[in-house]
Design a protein around this nucleic acid. Structure first.
Lengths: 129, 129
DNA sequence: CGGGATCCATCGTGATACTG
DNA sequence: CAGTATCACGATGGATCCCG
């Protein structure tokens, strides 16, 4: 009843799963960084820039668990690991793109709404009295 | 208020803004509950079920700030407040739908990937040596 | 190089009580 | 009815050290 759904039998809404993945700070950045090319751990670290090793590690592991990313280990010295999108991961980029487009198209409206609100948006919010 | 309640405008990439909204536990549920109809505070509370008053309040305020939801106050007794989607809010439901469809279509694949991973997906993950 | 383990600060969220 | 204030706790994420 707290936070996560405990109904282990049948997921009432699959969307919750997805939301958990895209909701976190980093999954989308990682997915994007892997779009079209294979990357190593430290490459991702540098590509994304402000992610910590721990979070990158956790995020990658979760994405791998869910089948979005494939991890390939080369047992050489020094160690070498490569990450790449799976078909599932790639297919996810599609609907995601819709969201990105929407964000681009309406970002100004949102910023405006915030400014209006900050300046006492009451002039708009009440009215009915 | 600890000074942390300031408005965080100016996100580098617009998608971040959106992600913050859909990332949290409740915004989408509220948006969905408001889809097509106007609702009062306590109605939303009951509709959604497992949300607390505090979180509903915060979520609504944030959605209002961002221009997704319009709050209308009727100064009668007892107090009466109605919430409704704005055009911006409604338009957001579109791209979201794409995500929901994807989730429905691929949820089984994800569950399968998790099970495989749990059973030692290593047999699949390494291979290259 | 690619992480895991640990410590710690902050945030999100629920519960409860209180206000108008 | 429609919130807000306060407290408490667990999850989240950064920093650092450590190991194969």
């Amino acid at each position: 009843m707290k936070g996560k759904d405990e109904f282990a039998f049948e997921q009432p809404c699959p969307i919750r799963d997805i939301l958990d993945r895209i909701g976190d700070q980093w999954s989308l950045l990682v997915l994007d960084a892997l779009d079209g090319r294979t990357r190593r751990f430290n490459e991702l670290l540098r590509d994304i820039g402000d992610i910590s090793k721990q979070m990158l590690s956790k995020t990658l592991k979760r994405l791998e668990q869910d089948g979005f990313v494939r991890r390939t280990l080369y047992a050489q010295v020094p160690l070498r690991v490569e990450y790449a999108l799976t078909d599932l991961g790639r297919s996810f980029l599609g609907p995601l793109q819709g969201l990105v487009c929407w964000a681009d198209a309406h970002h100004k409206a949102i910023v405006l709404a915030r400014r209006r609100y900050a300046n006492g948006g009451d002039a708009l919010a009440d009215a009915v009295l």
